[in-house]
Design a protein around this nucleic acid. Structure first.
Lengths: 339, 339
DNA sequence: ATGAAAGCGCTAACAG
DNA sequence: CTGTTAGCGCTTTCAT
């Protein structure tokens, strides 16, 4: 059945059946509270007989504790953000904190709406992806009165705590790698830069690094709306091979688009890495197993989540002096697609 | 700042500043309620000045409405389940229903814990993945008094509504395809069958279909703990090529393991599909873009979500006579890896 | 170890 | 269109 005829039982009902006061029932449902073993047993038995389910909406209101942490990510369909959520979740669970997850679709206006909705539910802390937000979203976070963690970025003016890395710096490392191989005609494949701020930072990092090396930084292919897919990466590669056939290396905004680019080369009989080198970003599983495997950057997504959780727990325990910024060092992984 | 010095303002504070009663403030925050334009404006202005944020913990308790739907999936890091969640989310949002998402790690005991936690928060409805649960989880769902939807499966004894497909039947279609090509030495690569019940159903469907065709159904490779990865698919394929080198075709429990198997063939110089044919499950993006592309089955994951949302909305509106079962017809996609 | 009273912040129900 | 009263189901606080 999917509908109950009668009203759900409350603690008062359980108390009546067990012959105790509602307060004792309340205590019996917490761990480490002073209730005698026999009484607790009788209460839990009574609760089970009645089909009682604890009502946390009432508990939340009275105790002013909701025991959840709000988390916003750009996309739920992304292995790296999923790893960050897993890292968070695993360290928050032992503290009895659940995660309320929402996705913004890489849209700051949607992020603002989501943050407002989430704050209404009174989370104990909030984790957001990125360091750029609408002015109103920023204000909401500043005034929320709870720990705030910005991740996957190193914002210039953080709202609260930060656990992230330099997207531009990571791509600079990649450019340096290619230049060290003696290459100069290097292209960048990414999505439209208005939506995905981390993608935009990577593109900006590419341009800055190329210019620092005195190389032409105009081989920029926009491949569609972020997050760009394998297919869009493939299409961008096709376009690149046709319009700028002397390109020696390609840096893609993510491993997924890089893999798409690789397959397009395979379909066209363009040898990788002999004729063109390819690199991605994110160290997704595909990057380590494709033939050839893809050169990429590991941003340690689950570490971002775990360290964010540590900050939250410390902040809730009052152990933090002020806002903390934890800088993650990304790792350049040179694989078969670039050597 | 991450901590507020003073207490957060309530509706009473807003009411005082705006010179109205708390009830009018409450009305001003709902749409389509009878509040004069000028009054509403003054109230929202006062709320903004105070930095007031609506407290839904109180609203939830008093109105006995939480405006969210609980959803459990085996893994958050899975493009197909993500599509189901997206399908749900997009159709529930216009109704003002948010999603509370949790993952079970393919573990029924963890699912039970999660369901209990979720029901304490009093969701309007609950969506679970699969049709097998612990006895206690089943009882909790039966007594929850809210619409329940089981997905991604066709349970024999549904708890409430169902939106799913036959995992065994889908694999039967795949076996039929290979047998029609004149092949008989067909293997199945999957994970341990104790955890992933959908994977177990696919394996059982493989065995049944092979036996129905009078073929040997013993080429079964267990590749690790579900969900099995690309790497585990590759390792299983290596094992298969060494122990049963006369195998003509391989059906994998998912596209990810199928892709791993494909790469292993490429590393070993085993031509696909000339020497061995490969098929997966799920129609992930990798399946359509790999070289060669992978034969697979599309279970229409976002449709599962959308139809589940429709059932929930109809049930909440009291438009459903009784439990509904919606059967999704999967689609066999024959691609380069098997022809 | 257990109980009684009060109230968390909002809104259902009723009145005007 | 707006206000008053009461109470959702717990837990804080203070007793015993």
């Amino acid at each position: 059945m999917t509908t109950a005829p009668r009203k759900a039982p409350t603690m008062a009902d359980v108390a009546r059946l067990a012959g105790v006061s509602p307060m004792t029932v309340s205590r019996a449902f917490k761990v480490e509270t002073s209730v005698s073993g026999a009484t607790r047993e009788a209460i839990l038995k009574a609760a089970d007989d009645l089909g009682y389910v604890f009502d946390s909406t009432a508990s939340n209101l009275r105790s002013q504790k909701t025991n959840f942490v709000a988390v916003t990510v750009p996309s739920i369909n992304n292995a790296n953000f999923a790893e960050t959520v897993r890292g968070l979740s695993e360290r928050l669970k032992p503290r009895g904190l659940q995660i309320l997850l929402g996705y913004t679709d890489y849209d700051m206006a949607e992020e603002e709406r989501l943050i407002e909705q989430f704050l209404r539910r009174r989370p104990e802390a909030i984790v957001v992806t990125g360091g750029r937000h609408t002015p109103r979203a920023r204000r909401l976070l500043e005034n929320a009165g709870i720990p705030v963690v910005e991740t996957w970025d190193l914002p210039e003016a953080p709202i609260g705590h930060v656990v992230g890395f330099s997207n531009a710096g990571a791509v600079r490392d990649m450019v340096d790698h290619f230049v060290a191989l003696g290459l100069t005609r290097i292209a960048f494949i990414g999505g439209d830069t208005t939506r995905d701020t981390r993608g935009a930072d990577r593109r900006a990092g590419f341009i800055a690094a190329m210019q620092a090396h005195g190389c032409d930084a105009t081989r920029l292919i926009a491949a569609g709306t972020p997050p760009i897919s394998m297919r869009e990466g493939a299409e961008a590669m096709g376009h690149l091979l046709e319009t700028l056939p002397d390109t020696q290396a390609v840096i893609c905004v993510s491993d997924l688009s890089a893999y798409g680019a690789l397959t397009e080369c395979q379909r066209r009989g363009v040898d990788v890495p002999e004729r063109v080198l390819i690199a991605g970003f994110g160290d997704y599983e595909i990057a380590s197993i494709s033939v050839p495997p893809l050169t990429t950057i590991n941003p340690f997504p689950s570490k971002i989540g775990a360290l964010s959780a540590d900050l939250i727990v410390a902040a809730l325990d009052g152990l933090l002096e002020g806002p903390q910024t934890i800088r993650i060092e990304t790792e350049l992984l040179i694989r078969g697609s670039s050597r």
